[in-house]
């Protein structure tokens, strides 16, 4: 500490007005320091999140040909909605999201409840379910593509099905199986993280609530219904929203498992269609329009979800 600051501490003026002024200037200084620290984050968000979003919205109303950009109103939106793959992509994405809600949302919660009941080996189990999360997504998907979903009899899943005397599948090559197969792989890759979050929430529930429920004669399912779910409602609600927003942005699964659109567009997602327009069809403006549509859908969903959740609370 410098002698100057020592001097400040030992010779405080007695006048309250001066004290208030000093206190205000101190607050301002602290606020400025706070804002200075925020600048880095604000610049990062502004440059890499907000500006691209604004730029995307602008681009969606423009068209660039021969280096000349013109305003074209809603043309890009009309064109993108008329793309024969547009509704297929939304249908596939909605189907993936719905299946992922059943598998990717409910299964980790049930697994977390089961793990939470174990008195021993919980740490090992946590590591075990978290291992797939540590694999880079591309590597995990290549494992599924080349080993699990090999459509020949040599494929892992087909070998298991044959062993069980069940009919084998063409997996990603079968238009009906493409989305369920992507959900299965995606759930395997991601459920470890969700389980850990649910477990943390479960372990925060006070034990005496369960004891009281037991004394009142509640069985396992009643305890889950009347204690576990209400006590983890906040985290369940948040995870449901994050799950929907994340799964609606389905991209890497079709890109790797189906080499793109899959058989007859069966794996085309909205995000993949954006990629296809932007990077393969020399149509960055159309891609921007579809991106804005997706932003509106996800933004609208998140807004409605938060409002509904707030009303319920």
């Amino acid at each position: 500490m410098t002698s100057a600051t020592m001097h400040h501490e030992t010779t405080l003026p007695a006048d309250p007005a001066v004290l208030r002024r000093r206190s205000r200037s101190g607050k301002t200084r602290n606020n400025l320091t706070g804002y200075a620290f925020l600048i880095g984050a604000i610049i990062c968000f502004a440059l890499f999140s907000w500006w691209p979003m604004i730029r995307g919205i602008i681009m969606s109303f423009q068209r660039t040909r021969r280096g000349v950009t013109t305003w074209v109103g809603w043309d890009n939106y009309v064109r993108i909605v008329q793309d024969p793959s547009f509704w297929t992509a939304w249908k596939n994405t909605a189907y993936f999201t719905a299946l992922a809600l059943i598998l990717g949302y409910a299964v980790p919660f049930v697994v977390a409840i089961i793990f939470n009941e174990f008195r021993h080996a919980q740490g090992y189990l946590r590591v075990l379910v978290y291992l797939p999360v540590m694999l880079p997504p591309a590597s995990a998907l290549f494992l599924f593509k080349y080993y699990a979903y090999d459509p020949s009899d040599a494929g892992l899943f087909n070998a298991i099905l044959r062993f069980l005397h069940l009919p084998t599948s063409q997996w990603m090559q079968d238009p009906k199986m493409a989305v369920p197969a992507m959900v299965l792989a995606s759930t395997w890759m991601n459920m470890g993280g969700a389980i850990l979050i649910y477990l943390a929430a479960l372990q925060n529930i006070p034990g005496d609530l369960y004891e009281a429920a037991e004394l009142d004669g509640a069985g396992l399912f009643k305890r889950i219904r009347h204690v576990t779910i209400p006590q983890t409602k906040l985290i369940l609600s948040l995870m449901a929203m994050l799950q929907v927003v994340a799964t609606m942005q389905l991209f890497i699964e079709p890109l790797i498992l189906a080499n793109g659109a899959g058989s007859q567009d069966s794996a085309t997602s909205v995000a993949y269609l954006i990629y296809q327009h932007g990077f393969f069809q020399n149509d960055l403006n159309g891609a921007a329009a579809l991106g804005v549509i997706m932003l509106l859908v996800l933004g609208g969903f998140s807004f409605a979800y938060v409002r509904l959740s707030a009303k319920q609370d």
Binding site: Q170, P175, G262, S263, Q264, Q276, F280, Q281, N282
Partner: peptide, 22 residues
């Protein structure tokens, strides 16, 4: 515009090679 055309024709090729009823 070959790449745009190729991306679309992938759909026809994949249908014929993966679906016997295509």
């Amino acid at each position: 515009n070959a790449q745009a055309i190729y991306a679309i024709l992938d759909g026809a090729m994949s249908a014929i090679l993966t679906d016997p009823n295509a």
